[in-house]
C-alpha cells in the first residue's frame, strides 16, 4: 500500500470465480483487481451475465471466491469463516437488491428496525423512524411490503441499508425494477445518503444515468474490470 493513500474499504486482488455448468467449466471472474476508497462512489457496468452481481456478492462476502483475495473494511474475507464474515457485515455493510428483498412478514418500520437491532445500535426505534422520514415514508411505516409500490419498497430497502450508518453500501441494480421517474428519485436518495454518511457506494447497474453520477465507472469485460472515461 502506498503511503498517503487511504486504506480501501473494499479491495479485490487477483480475484477469480469459476463454476461448473451444463456446458462445462465457466470462468466468470478472472484475475480481477478492484479498490474502493472510503466515501467513493463506484459504478460497475456490463452486459447481462457478465458477472457483475457475482462480483458484488463476493465483495460483500455473500459467496466464496475460487481464487484471489477479497478485503472488506480492512479484513481479509477468504480467511474468515461464514460467521466471521456475517459479524463483519453486521452494521458496517449495507445492501440494496434489485428485487428489494424486504421481509414480507414485517412492516416497513420493522424491516428498517431489524438491522439496527441485530447490530445492537442505540435508540433503534428513533433511528428507524428517522431513516423512514429521510426516504419520505413516515406515513407508511405500518404498511407491509405487499401494500407498497415498487418504488416505495425500494425506498424502504434503502432506509434499511442506510439506517445502521454502514461504511460501505453495495447496490445491485437498485433501479432495475423501477420506472424512469422513480429510478431518478432512488438515485438521488442513494447519492444524498452516501454523502451524508460519508460511506462508500459500490453499485452494479445497466443505467448509464446512474453510472454518470458516480465518481468512477468500471466496465466488466471477460471477467475483468476496465475503467471507463
Amino acid at each position: 500500500m502506498t503511503v498517503g493513500e487511504p486504506e480501501p474499504v473494499s479491495r479485490a486482488v487477483a480475484l477469480g470465480k469459476h463454476v461448473n455448468g451444463p456446458a462445462g467449466a465457466l470462468t466468470i471472474l478472472n484475475d480481477l483487481e478492484l479498490r474502493v476508497n472510503p466515501g467513493e462512489a463506484v459504478a460497475i457496468l456490463g452486459a447481462s451475465g457478465s458477472g457483475k452481481s457475482t462480483l458484488l456478492g463476493l465483495l460483500a462476502g455473500l459467496d466464496d471466491a475460487t481464487s484471489g483475495e477479497v478485503w472488506l473494511c480492512g479484513e481479509r474475507l477468504d480467511q474468515l469463516d461464514e460467521d466471521g464474515r456475517a459479524a463483519l457485515r453486521n452494521g458496517r455493510v449495507g445492501f440494496v437488491f434489485q428485487n428489494f428483498q424486504l421481509l414480507p412478514t414485517l412492516n416497513a418500520r420493522e424491516n428498517v428496525l431489524l438491522p439496527l437491532e441485530l447490530s445492537g445500535a442505540t435508540e433503534p426505534e428513533r433511528r428507524a423512524e428517522e431513516a423512514l422520514e429521510r426516504v419520505g415514508l413516515s406515513a407508511r411505516a405500518r404498511h407491509f411490503p405487499r401494500q407498497l409500490s415498487g418504488g416505495e419498497q425500494q425506498r424502504v430497502a434503502i432506509a434499511r441499508a442506510w439506517a445502521p450508518r454502514p461504511e460501505v453500501l453495495f447496490a445491485d441494480e437498485p433501479t432495475g425494477n423501477l420506472d424512469h421517474e422513480t429510478g431518478e428519485h432512488i438515485i438521488d436518495l442513494l447519492l444524498d445518503l452516501k454523502r451524508e454518511a460519508g460511506a462508500a457506494l459500490v453499485l452494479v447497474t445497466h443505467d448509464p444515468r446512474l453510472a454518470e453520477r458516480c465518481d468512477r465507472r468500471l466496465a466488466m469485460r471477460a471477467g475483468r474490470l476496465e475503467a471507463l472515461a
Binding site: 460483500a60 455473500l62 461464514e82 460467521d83 456475517a86 459479524a87 463483519l88 457485515r89 453486521n90 452494521g91 458496517r92 455493510v93 445492501f95 428483498q101 421481509l103 414480507p104 431489524l114 438491522p115 441485530l118 447490530s119
Partner: peptide, 17 residues
C-alpha cells in the same frame, strides 16, 4: 419463506450459529 429470510438476514450480518 425461510430461504428468502435467511438470505436477507445473513446479508444483514446475522451469523450462522
Amino acid at each position: 419463506q425461510r430461504r428468502a429470510e435467511h438470505g436477507v438476514l445473513r446479508t444483514l450480518g446475522v451469523g450462522r450459529r
